[in-house]
């Protein structure tokens, strides 16, 4: 009795420790849509594979012993086969236990991960080329990924169209990662916990608070006064620095020599 009990206790401690190790999920293994957070998923998924069977695109596979994913649980690797975001979400419907949450009715609400443009050094758009592939394939184009225009400082005269992921719309389907034309994708879907920062809970964005309150919460609003030379003024509504036309003095005369001479005079 004691021998058996002791043996089984040792054995259980062994598999308990092993399970802790084996339950860790590598960053590039994504769970199907609607999957509960990983800690709950590992207790809710009974490893039946029905979600795998009902995936029409063979995106999902069941982890085998020796894979880095908990044995028997479903996952997909976006670079191999991304999620096609079926509107009827058959994998979730197939799940008998609700490890894939049946509350998920709109695939756009799925959060399998979050795309991150991880390598700005190799992303073609960051070099000023118009690859745009990740943007074009995104099922939530212009919401999950937008192209943000920036000045191209390398050429000095062109624009950069920077693919920019927005976490409020990105489902983590991985089509961008799959489509990236580089040898190794510059944009990758990562688990949200890795991809997103989280603001200190006591932090507040001043300008948002101000907008909410309808006015400054700290000191009364005051316009900063610039100490400008005569004949110049600053427009606070957005026009910026304005040279008064009739002041008679402009910084740059039509004859460049005048400007030079004036400088010399000023130094005397």
């Amino acid at each position: 009795m004691a021998r058996t009990g002791g043996g089984v206790t040792l054995f259980s401690m062994g598999i308990g420790l092993y399970a802790r190790q084996a339950a860790s999920l590598p960053a590039l293994a994504l769970r199907p849509p609607g999957a509960l957070d990983e800690a709950h998923f590992i207790g809710a998924c009974i490893r039946c594979g029905l979600c795998v069977r009902d995936c029409p695109y063979d995106t999902l596979s069941l982890a085998r012993l020796g894979d880095e994913v908990a044995t028997g649980t479903p996952y997909f690797t976006a670079r191999d086969v991304p999620c096609e975001m079926c509107e009827d979400i058959p994998c979730v419907k197939a799940c008998p236990t609700g490890a894939l949450d049946h509350e998920l009715s709109d695939i756009d609400d799925a959060r399998m991960g979050l795309a991150v443009l991880i390598d700005e050094e190799n992303c073609l758009n960051f070099q000023g080329l118009r690859c745009d592939v990740c943007y074009r394939v995104c099922p939530s184009i212009d919401q999950a990924i937008t192209l943000e225009m920036q000045h191209n400082r390398r050429s000095g005269k062109h624009a950069l169209f920077i693919p920019t992921v927005h976490s409020d719309a990105c489902t983590g389907c991985g089509k961008c990662e799959k489509a990236c034309v580089l040898e190794e994708a510059a944009i990758k879907v990562l688990p949200t916990r890795l991809a997103k920062g989280e603001l200190g809970h006591h932090y507040r964005w001043g300008w948002k608070e101000k907008q909410k309150a309808g006015g400054s919460l700290v000191t009364p609003d005051q316009q900063h006064r610039y100490n400008l030379p005569q004949g110049e003024r600053y427009d606070y509504e957005g026009e910026g620095l304005i040279f008064e036309q009739n002041s008679g003095r402009t910084p740059f005369a039509s004859d460049p020599l005048d400007t030079l001479n004036r400088g010399v005079e000023g130094r005397r």
Binding site: S12, I15, G16, Y18, A19, R20, A22, A23, A39, H40, I42, G43, C45, I46, R47, A70, T71, G72
Partner: peptide, 13 residues
């Protein structure tokens, strides 16, 4: 093990 770890530990082996 399931009760205290919240995972299906036996299914790992």
């Amino acid at each position: 093990l399931a009760l205290f770890s919240g995972a299906l530990v036996w299914e790992f082996v």
